[in-house]
């Protein structure tokens, strides 16, 4: 990074992340990750553990690299030609950037929910059944029906759509579409679910429903969520990581980060002085 962009109101981004990078029981762990878009460095030497069955939220001002880092975790950055990733990201002690690893099965283990709801232009049923079908998770029609039903139930959408499974998923409301996308992601039984600002396109009521859903899903899944809403991060996450200009400034228990931040930048951001 260029020196002067490391300064915000005279405060330097620390060379080393403050707080607890490591957890006792990590599902994924990243070490010394750097990401480049062509010449530009988007992520600068980030190391972070993501704990089993925990919700961790990434916060920080726009352009701080939190979405980029999120997309490294299931190698979605591969679809961008000029993007280069180095360092090490492990899931269950296996480096996901190892040439031997199969990206397709990695993405089945690390699912993703996007900022804008993006249901396929297919029926509600086919939206959920898409993942199980391509991965051969259901041996029979009955089994597939069960997967679809249980995924929709876990996403809290079953009661709303059970009578119209054959209708297009794009016909649902924005909030329902986003829960459909979450149901679609959990239908392939991932271990980790990445969520990239999943509520930014939703109204407050739909947001509340999605947050409630995240709260229930934490029992079974490890969830990484990028959010612009600090209240949301405070409400739903166990740990919080604060990103700034491509660096991870601080990470720790959510309560600790929001009540007693270790770095002035975090303090300034959560008190709304910039961002």
């Amino acid at each position: 990074m260029v020196q002067n962009t490391n300064q915000v109101e005279g405060r330097a981004v620390p060379e080393k992340t403050l707080g607890e990078i490591q957890v006792d029981n990590p599902r994924m762990s990243a070490r010394n990750v750097n990401v480049f878009y062509g010449e530009k460095q988007a992520i600068d030497n980030i190391s972070l553990d993501i704990g089993m069955s925990q919700v961790i939220s990434f916060i920080g001002p726009s352009g701080c690299g939190k979405s980029t880092f999120l997309r490294c975790l299931n190698r979605m950055n591969d679809t961008i030609d000029i993007c280069k990733v180095d360092g090490e990201i492990k899931i269950d002690h296996q480096n996901i950037y190892d040439p031997a690893i199969d990206v397709v099965s990695l993405r089945a283990r690390v699912g993703m929910v996007f900022q804008k709801p993006n249901p396929f232009p297919k029926s509600i049923f086919d939206n959920i059944a898409y993942g199980p079908r391509i991965h051969g998770l259901a041996a029979s029609k009955v089994e597939l029906d069960q997967i679809v039903e249980s995924s929709l139930q876990r996403a809290g959408l079953w009661e709303e759509v059970k009578d119209r499974l054959d209708q297009p998923g794009t016909g649902l409301s924005g909030g329902q579409q986003q829960r459909l996308c979450i149901a679609r992601a959990i239908a392939v039984s991932p271990e980790v679910i990445l969520m990239d600002e999943p509520c930014s396109a939703l109204d407050p009521i739909a947001t509340a429903k999605v947050e409630e859903l995240i709260h229930e899903l934490r029992e079974q899944y490890t969830i990484v969520i990028v959010t612009h809403s600090m209240q949301q991060a405070a409400r739903i996450s166990d740990r919080t990581a604060y990103f700034h200009l491509g660096k991870l400034v601080e990470v720790g228990d959510t309560k600790q980060v929001f009540t007693n931040p270790r770095h002035e930048l975090t303090q300034d951001y959560i008190t709304g002085r910039f961002g």
Partner: peptide, 27 residues
């Protein structure tokens, strides 16, 4: 065809040809 549909397909672990056949071409 919106990039978001491709992202969704890749995010669920589709290969390129699966994404093309089942998502992009129908759209």
């Amino acid at each position: 065809v919106p990039q978001s549909l491709r992202d969704a397909a890749y995010g669920l672990g589709s290969t390129r040809s699966e994404a093309v056949r089942q998502v992009v071409l129908p759209a």
